[in-house]
Nucleic acid binder design. Structure first.
Lengths: 83, 83
DNA sequence: CAAAGATATCGACTTTTCCCGATATACCAA
DNA sequence: TTGGTATATCGGGAAAAGTCGATATCTTTG
């Protein structure tokens, strides 16, 4: 999922019908591509958010998720310095 | 354990009695510090080795483990580029 | 070769993670 | 306000990971 969200326009073309890519991609799009149930994907995304790897924004009935690039940068640096 | 192995001289002073630090630290030292059973530590170290994070060298009755710094560098870069 | 020490492997049990269906909540539109 | 759509939460079962004791393997020493 995190790799998919690196190139939302390529991996989630149908997202255009749901408000574009400004705030990210909504759960249903990711769920369809992942082939897992709605609840699983929802839980997973909220876990990624708690971990800081994605940001979410609720707009109307949709929740958009997009990557938080800073977290990956930080993780990369953490592995370099601490681990 | 991986953090401990970053500074073997500091974290495993008794290793001096078991051939020094040239090839790393032997399982018993790590086990004592970890507070887990011998089998658990042995399995864990061999897992880390299969994953590439440590290298092992058998010398006589001892097996020495040391960090493979390249693997951490590679992981850090992988997170930057692929993830 | 026998005994002892260090490490590895095996089988079982416990804990955690993964994933699901069912249900709840939030929002929109008629 | 009611029904439909999107997402979130909950409880439970299945799968995986973690840990252990017992035992096997390898090595050194006598």
């Amino acid at each position: 999922m995190l790799e998919w969200l690196k190139e939302p326009e390529i991996n989630f073309p149908d997202q255009l019908q749901y408000g574009g890519f400004e705030h990210g991609v909504c759960v249903g799009q990711i769920q369809a591509k992942a082939g897992l149930t709605q609840s699983t994907v929802s839980e997973y995304l909220s876990l990624l958010q708690r971990a800081g790897f994605v940001e979410s924004k609720r707009v109307g009935q949709w929740t958009y998720y997009k990557r938080n690039e800073g977290a990956f940068e930080a993780l990369s640096k953490l592995i370099q310095s601490n681990l």
